[in-house]
């Protein structure tokens, strides 16, 4: 698996794409693989304030629940509605169509503490 260069990553396996002060957040290919078939995604309502490193929601497989930790702080401005009907998209396209939320970042500097693609790749090791 090659992790996209334009994204920044956390050790909890989330990614964020910054465009201006808006960060689009998702979980990584590694995360979805570990979880297996994802059956449900629980996301916060737009307007919710989230903090870096704190839970912003969860993803579920048949027999496990995993918290999603927000990679950046700010306010949720949009959630990916398609995931409530089609959670399997998270297994299919975790770095693209299956983004989770968009956050208006309150501290864009937080991005600097996140991992670049190469560093994340090293962190998770070689994968197929």
């Amino acid at each position: 698996m090659t992790y996209p260069e334009e994204l920044r990553y956390t050790k909890e396996h989330e990614w964020v794409l910054a465009e201006g002060d808006v960060g689009t957040v998702g979980i990584t290919w590694h995360a979805q693989k570990e979880l297996g078939d994802i059956v449900y995604v629980d996301l916060p309502k737009p307007g919710t304030r989230v903090e870096q490193g704190k839970s912003l929601g969860s993803v579920e497989s048949v027999k496990a629940v995993s918290d999603i930790y927000s990679p950046v702080s700010g306010e949720v401005i949009e959630t990916n509605e398609t995931l409530s009907q089609s959670p399997e998209k998270l297994n299919e396209d975790p770095h693209g169509a299956a983004w989770l939320v968009k956050i208006r970042m309150s501290a864009p500097d937080e991005m600097k503490g996140l991992l670049a693609a190469a560093a994340y790749q090293t962190y998770v090791g070689a994968e197929t």
Binding site: Y40, E60, S61, V62, K63, A64, V65
Partner: peptide, 12 residues
């Protein structure tokens, strides 16, 4: 929908 239940979600 067993993820609601104690054997998976424990104290939550």
């Amino acid at each position: 929908l067993a993820t609601r239940e104690q054997h998976i979600r424990r104290e939550k």
